[in-house]
Design a protein around this nucleic acid. Sequence first.
DNA 1: GTCTATATAAAGATAGAC
DNA 2: GTCTATCTTTATATAGAC
Lengths: 190, 190
Amino acid sequence: MSENTGNTRARIQSVALELFTEQGYEKTSLREIAERLGVTKAALYYHFKSKDDIVNSFVEDRLDRLDGLIKMGAEPPVDVAARRRELLSRYADEFFGSTGHSVMRFFDQNQTVLKSLPAGQMMRERLLQLATVLAWPQDSPTAQLRATLALFAVHSSWFAIRSPEITDAQRRELALEIAHELLDRIDGTP
Amino acid sequence: MSENTGNTRARIQSVALELFTEQGYEKTSLREIAERLGVTKAALYYHFKSKDDIVNSFVEDRLDRLDGLIKMGAEPPVDVAARRRELLSRYADEFFGSTGHSVMRFFDQNQTVLKSLPAGQMMRERLLQLATVLAWPQDSPTAQLRATLALFAVHSSWFAIRSPEITDAQRRELALEIAHELLDRIDGTP
DNA sequence: GTCTATATAAAGATAGAC
DNA sequence: GTCTATCTTTATATAGAC
């Protein structure tokens, strides 16, 4: 009947993710995470071998899922435009999915610091690849910009839509609506 | 004939801005800045009273300039669509202007950490206001998202266009082209 | 699995000489 | 205006008891 056996690891991840996202990775100390959980720093080191290791723990799963998308994007498409829409729609699923949401926000908020962590470098690389399968290097500069903005439509729907009564599902739909407009113009206006 | 009299302050700003942008504010120590300049930390404290004070020093000028834009956006426009284009075009001028460029990139890269600095809060507030004069709260959620993406088109043209031979002036033009498309649709598709 | 206690390193910041 | 030297605080991380 003991309340927290085995799930401490998950609770650490949850609190760390929240604080890292809210205040930044560097600004959040292990002491602060430990206090929030009512344990000591030493307890954290039982579950994770270092501070970056906490980041690694929630990155691996995301990498695999993004790799799936990129692989799909690399295969020759029957219909280029439809493929782009499908990629972005699936990306939105990832982004708005249960765990994906908070992890991706964490990346948005800690881009710069994450450049120096291996886990962060991997994620950056994946997002770049994703942008690349949406608009290839041989496409025009405008096409590249449109593709990046389509991805960012998904990301920014989180904070750019300030109407508080909007649900996550609605944000996803609105983001995709605009993202699709952008994508469809990639070949549309040469 | 002494080489560096009086301009040390400016050299500190320049190096700090570069390192803060590249590695993040928290990850960059005063020791590192000092070493890069060939001086000691104590010298830094002669010119700036604290680490955040360095940030303040390059923020104030930007704030004034953004305030000018916001004020212009708050006045009743003759033609709403033309006003939006004008605002964004001026914003692009700021962004691609000599000093503006690097300072705005610094903000992009340090959003999260800057939440805890007064200077950062001010800048966030201004960018939010700018988004708000582009699409008002009574506009649709889609309009809000389009407005934010238009701003981001300017920001992301910096890294999203990966063709290396493109000049800054061209990036500005391409960004505005897409930004204007987005803005024009704010009232266009209800 | 969690604790106390501590090692170690590095940060921001200041005092006072030159 | 820049230096040396130092203070103070805080961080990540570890050792070993319970």
